[in-house]
């Protein structure tokens, strides 16, 4: 296909993909989710059922985008996520759809999402049905996250708290580190890169790059945080030490992706 036509196709296919995404989210909200919730009294179980539905939908969504030619992707060590529970998955956050790739690898997981998502008409129902956690009062969020990990729920968190700024060093906030300190549970890091960069902060969906985007997703080794947590140390120090470890994991992972070409 000639380049301008190819680009036009990818703009249309991206628009179609995102429309389908929103419509399926709405459709699930008025059909599937109420049924999944109405057939059990156990709220946690209902949430996990809905999380599984989201997992399947996200897998299909990735298939759709690949089939339509919006993107290509490669995954490395995805098997490290098989059967995990009570684990916090931390990832860098280059694009709008990172969470789609991660949830597509985890049959059930909670996610921390920004407050605005609960007022997004397409996504509000998904947030409610899955029990995803709202980025609200920081102290309460840290406690809720730690409790959920203890209960055996997985949790996806982006320590940057917002999408990365292309070309800038990662800037990790200290919410994820606080959860690691509070829960003392092992984490699994995931490194995501996207070339050429797309769907980053402030970019509109129709600003598609000149060539088709390629995602690389690498699941890292489990990291036990106990060695970096020092008893009696201030929160500020411990969370910064944890973040240096995370930053190094992300930085070297991103570098590895770029070197591999």
């Amino acid at each position: 296909m000639p380049a301008p036509l190819d680009r036009l196709w990818r703009v249309a296919a991206t628009g179609l993909s995102f429309s389908v995404f929103g419509l399926i989210a709405l459709f699930f909200t008025i059909t599937l989710f109420p049924v999944l919730h109405a057939t059990t009294f156990d709220r946690g179980r209902a949430n996990r059922r809905c999380q599984f539905a989201v997992h399947l939908a996200f897998r299909w969504f990735i298939w759709l985008m690949r089939t339509l030619g919006v993107l290509t992707y490669e995954r490395h060590n995805a098997d490290r996520l098989i059967g995990v529970s009570g684990t916090m998955i931390v990832a860098n956050h280059p694009t709008l759809i990172d969470v789609v790739f991660i949830v597509a690898m985890l049959p059930t997981t909670l996610c921390v999402a920004k407050r605005a998502t609960w007022s997004n008409p397409f996504l509000a129902g998904v947030m409610w049905a899955t029990g995803y956690l709202q980025d609200e009062d920081p102290v309460r969020l840290v406690t809720t996250c730690a409790e959920n990990l203890k209960k055996g729920n997985n949790l996806v968190v982006f320590p940057e708290a917002t999408r990365s700024v292309p070309g800038h060093p990662l800037r990790l906030r200290r919410g994820a580190a606080s959860v690691i300190k509070a829960s003392r549970r092992a984490i699994i890091p995931i490194v995501i890169t996207c070339q050429p960069p797309t769907l980053s902060k402030g970019e509109k969906w129709y600003q598609v790059p000149n060539s088709r985007v390629h995602f690389k997703i690498t699941v890292g080794d489990r990291v036990d945080p106990s060695t970096v947590i020092v008893e009696g140390e201030s929160n500020g120090k411990t969370t910064r030490r944890i973040n240096r470890v995370l930053e190094e994991l992300f930085r070297s992972g991103i570098e590895g992706h770029e070197c591999a070409g």
Binding site: P138, V139, R173, R174, G175, G236
Partner: peptide, 8 residues
Amino acid sequence: IDSIDAVD
């Protein structure tokens, strides 16, 4: 200094 630090 982020919101978590502010609480501390």
